[in-house]
């Protein structure tokens, strides 16, 4: 699949040392995650003011947090591109499952009982 051409890449890097993230970066990411969690709660406490937007804010923040975890803690930012593609595939096919299930559920014609 899309990751085929990366094979040569890994060959070239045969003697490259894996990337070491500096401690400061981890501290920053950890701090950012804490701040975002507090932000989620602050948004939750005041959610009466923008009820319809609340889920989007909560999940938006969660998405940012997820990105931070994936990029730095899980080291995807410095990983081989093929591994990024592999991980992304999981989310893609999850979206497929979601999309078709939801298409069915919300386009059904409500029917009375025929019994």
């Amino acid at each position: 699949m899309a990751n085929n051409h990366n094979h040569s890449h890994s060959d070239h890097g045969a003697h490259a040392e894996p990337h070491v993230t500096p401690l400061r970066t981890y501290l920053n990411v950890g701090a950012a995650l804490f701040v975002l969690t507090f932000l989620t709660i602050i948004a939750h406490v005041f959610k009466a003011h923008y009820l319809s937007l609340a889920p989007f804010i909560a999940f938006g923040i969660a998405a940012v947090k997820a990105f931070l975890v994936m990029a730095w803690f899980m080291h995807l930012k410095y990983d081989e591109p093929s591994n990024r593609v592999i991980f992304a595939l999981g989310f893609f096919f999850l979206a497929v499952l979601f999309a078709f299930s939801i298409i069915d559920i919300f386009t059904r014609v409500p029917q009375g009982t025929v019994l």
Partner: peptide, 29 residues
């Protein structure tokens, strides 16, 4: 060599993580 083994193991780990995402994902859906 060392790197060959490392990168292969790493890819295996990521593939396994994909299965975790899809399994939990079913519940989210």
């Amino acid at each position: 060599d060392v790197h060959h083994q490392y990168s292969s193991n790493k890819e295996g780990i990521w593939l396994f993580m994909v299965t975790e995402i899809l399994m939990f994902g079913g519940l989210f859906v």
